[in-house]
């Protein structure tokens, strides 16, 4: 019963991003059909691969007649950022059984990382409850992504212009609400500023490489400023 309660918290924390993801799922389903692919292909993609932006890139590459190895390699590059999430989550999952970790890995998407990872910092998830919260978030996104894929494939043309409504702004708002509690010290402000400038400057790089580079630059900035702080503090401590 308690497990369910924690899973529920994960799902609730994910609601704004689920709303933000709905137009993408509908769009994916309808684009697959528009590209003469079957509904089964769209369903297989969303249920087996389960990787939002990589699925869109793959549709584009299939339409362009790209060879299979290019599609697979591009998917790899687009999803590379997930390895950073895994590295960051490692300390919270290493005590869990292997099977559970392998299962959680399947659901390690941007949104679940965004929803659950800060909860460890804010004290609403810990080593005993975190994986339950995580799975609640993962399941609710998985359900949304597959249901909207099917609806989009069946009835995409019946919902005109849903991609222009701006529902994705719910994701922007959620991400900012996750980011602001961190903005309490210079290193975090530094990482924030560098992430903004670098991601905008590098946005035209292919395959989300700009996103990966901007993230690495911002992380480095935060780390260097943090070290500077720590060194100053220890020097001051020596003087006293």
């Amino acid at each position: 019963m308690k497990t369910l309660r924690h899973a529920q918290r994960g799902a609730i924390a994910s609601i704004p991003m689920i709303i933000g993801g709905i137009p993408f799922g509908l769009l994916f389903g309808s684009l697959a059909i528009a590209n003469d692919l079957s509904i089964w292909f769209a369903i297989a993609m969303s249920s087996i691969v389960f990787a939002g932006s990589a699925q869109f890139v793959a549709l584009g590459l299939i339409a362009a007649g790209a060879p299979i190895w290019v599609i697979v390699l591009t998917t790899f590059v687009v999803n590379l950022r997930h390895i950073l999430y895994a590295a960051d989550m490692l300390k919270f999952v290493k005590h869990l059984p292997l099977k559970l970790r392998l299962f959680m890995g399947f659901g390690l998407i941007d949104e679940t990382y965004a929803a659950v990872r800060p909860m460890y910092d804010m004290g609403s998830a810990n080593k005993d409850t975190g994986h339950k919260v995580y799975i609640g978030s993962f399941f609710s996104f998985y359900l949304m992504w597959n249901v909207t894929t099917i609806i989009g494939a069946l009835a995409g043309e019946l919902i005109p212009g849903i991609s222009q409504w701006g529902l994705e702004f719910a994701m922007v708002a959620t991400f900012i609400s996750i980011v602001t509690p961190y903005l309490k010290s210079v290193p975090y402000w530094g990482a924030f500023a560098v992430a903004i400038v670098a991601s905008v400057a590098l946005r035209e790089m292919p395959n989300h490489l700009g996103l990966i580079m901007a993230t690495l630059m911002a992380v480095t900035t935060g780390y260097v400023l943090d070290r500077g702080n720590a060194q100053n503090a220890s020097q001051e401590a020596k003087h006293v």
């Binding site: 590295a87 994705e168 903004i196 991601s199 946005r203 911002a218 480095t220 935060g222």
Partner: peptide, 23 residues
């Protein structure tokens, strides 16, 4: 590395939404 990784959430989330908001 752990000290660096704590900057991943703020960095990646900001880098995802900044281009959406500013361009």
């Amino acid at each position: 590395l752990n000290k660096a990784l704590k900057f991943v959430p703020i960095s990646v989330l900001t880098a995802i939404i900044a281009p959406m908001s500013l361009t």
